[in-house]
Amino acid sequence: MYLGPILLTFVVGATLIALYFIPHHQAQEINSELLLWATIVYAFALILGSVSLWSVHAQRIRQRISGWPFSLVTLFALLGTTFMGVAWGIGEESPLGRFYSMVNSPLASTMFALLAFFIASAAFRAFRARNVEATLLLVTAIVMMIGRVSVGEFIWRGFPGLTEWLLDVPNLAAKRAIAIGVGLGAVSTALKIILGIERGYLGRTR
């Protein structure tokens, strides 16, 4: 029952690997074409997403599940933006474009700005000298926090140099080690999928 999808995965996966090594312009055109296909498939998946969004939130409103007014706002926004897009297009100056840049963008920026508060709160809780390793982490964190901003240089001229060393030597060494591990893990997972060893994505749990 799974032979068809596994074969398809193998053929597409092996083709894409081969295309990586073939710089011929026609091969690269095929590569671009395949990437376009992925975009088209994604567009169809968005229909599934919209259906899911609608059914989940409609159910929440019907059953008055906690937070249901938010679901109402979501569905209203879904219908409203769809209507704007269909009626007046999706250009920069269209109502949808303006809605995007005047409502969605500021909201996203506000959410991102909250990160500073979350970082401060997490740092206060996590950086405590419970043992030798945690103490090392704490001292390094303080040196980095002070040394990476102008005030560090104001306090001691050697701070920027010290933080550069911390970033360039211990930090980079650890990052490279983790990155090599991640890279090999990713190659291994990709090969397992292409060869049909890993079939979780087909819904097979064993």
Binding site: A116, I119, A120, A123, F124, R125, F127, R128, A129, R130, N131, A134, L138, A141, I142, M145, I146, R148, V149, S150, V151, G152
Partner: peptide, 27 residues
């Protein structure tokens, strides 16, 4: 700069409180 100083100060304050409360040990 000032936010970094505040966070560093809070981290130090948290550690001082940890020592004073005698709760050192694994998290």
């Amino acid at each position: 700069s000032l936010v970094h100083v505040i966070v560093a100060f809070l981290v130090i304050l948290g550690t001082v409180a940890l020592f004073a409360s005698g709760q050192r040990g694994p998290a």
